[in-house]
Design a protein around this nucleic acid. Structure first.
Lengths: 170, 170
DNA sequence: GATAGATGCTTGGACGTCCAGAGATGTCGA
DNA sequence: TCGACATCTCTGGACGTCCAAGCATCTATC
């Protein structure tokens, strides 16, 4: 179809291309917002790829890592399911799912609060503590200390994301 | 445990709290990066919530919307599966999954390229075009024109996300 | 105390994403 | 022509997220 020597329809950056098409269709007021949203979606995907690659040797995903990290921080290493969902800002069923897998991996135990037997407490095991500490060291080294932006820009990006969260009622 | 009158362990912003804990554990070099990554993950979640809410009346998700939008832009309304995965930057199986659902909804048809019968072309139907144009109008109005930041900040955020994508080899 | 409503958690199902592997088709060199 | 290899797509399964619905337990009201 094309005479482009590097292949047909070479597109450098799909997001830039989408922005161009939005403007070409007259959606001028929306083009920049579309580009921002699409960029965030893509960055999210790339960052999670990096994070999950680091966590893979520990047989963890980011979702389960966050649960373990939260429990390791908690006093007594115990937090109720509902409270975890609230702190991690995920739905109760996601907590159920994550804790179920962590329990199978023997990184977490389930306990029932005696004063209110409806409440399930997730409790990190000694092995869970070892795993989460090792995983945190690696995550810090390989992702969080090298997030892909200069230190000042990291702060700017964080501030903008915080504003976006606030605008969405977070 | 706590004497906080508004309940125990009131936490305003889980991300700020995580940042504090990271510093308290001496992970100073990683704390800002952790906060940025966590913020992006959260913003992604909130934005997709907004987008999916707008698309719900059209029985679309963002993933399927992107496929439809791409097809509507393409000449003849046709694109091969592999090329869609490349342009949308998702795995081939995600394209298969999205096109399968769109086909059931009669928004897309599958054709086979005669000159190379390995290639499947997704082709948008007239009904698909109607749906995607209507959905685009709503998305522009309700999300992309009101992304939650001032216009200048939208540009800054987009630039930072673009730099992050470049750093990740996008 | 008994019953109605609230709360905490789980289950089952739909969808999206990724991986591993398989099947069909094309291409290239012996 | 034939066989080896590459390419395109799909299937099946694991995991995460969300929704709707259900069960167990607690609380409040009479």
């Amino acid at each position: 179809m094309s005479s482009n020597p590097a292949g047909d329809d070479e597109i450098r950056d799909p997001i830039r291309e989408a922005h161009r098409l939005w403007e070409a269709h007259g959606w001028l007021e929306a083009a920049n917002g579309m580009a921002m949203v699409t960029s965030i979606v893509r960055v999210h995907q790339l960052l999670l790829e990096r994070v999950d690659a680091v966590l893979k040797p520990y047989d963890l995903t980011f979702a389960r890592y966050e649960v373990l990290r939260l429990l390791a921080f908690a006093s007594n290493g115990r937090v109720s399911m509902t409270r975890m969902g609230s702190l991690l800002q995920v739905h109760p069923t996601s907590v159920t799912s994550a804790v179920a897998r962590l329990e199978r991996q023997e990184l977490v135990e389930r306990l029932r609060r005696t004063t209110d037997r409806r409440v399930v407490l997730a409790s990190i095991t000694d092995h869970g503590r070892e795993v989460v500490e090792a995983a945190t060291v690696r995550l810090n080294e390989e992702v969080f200390e090298q997030p892909g932006l200069a230190p000042a820009e990291v702060l700017t990006a964080t501030r903008l994301m915080t504003d976006l969260r606030a605008a969405a009622g977070d």
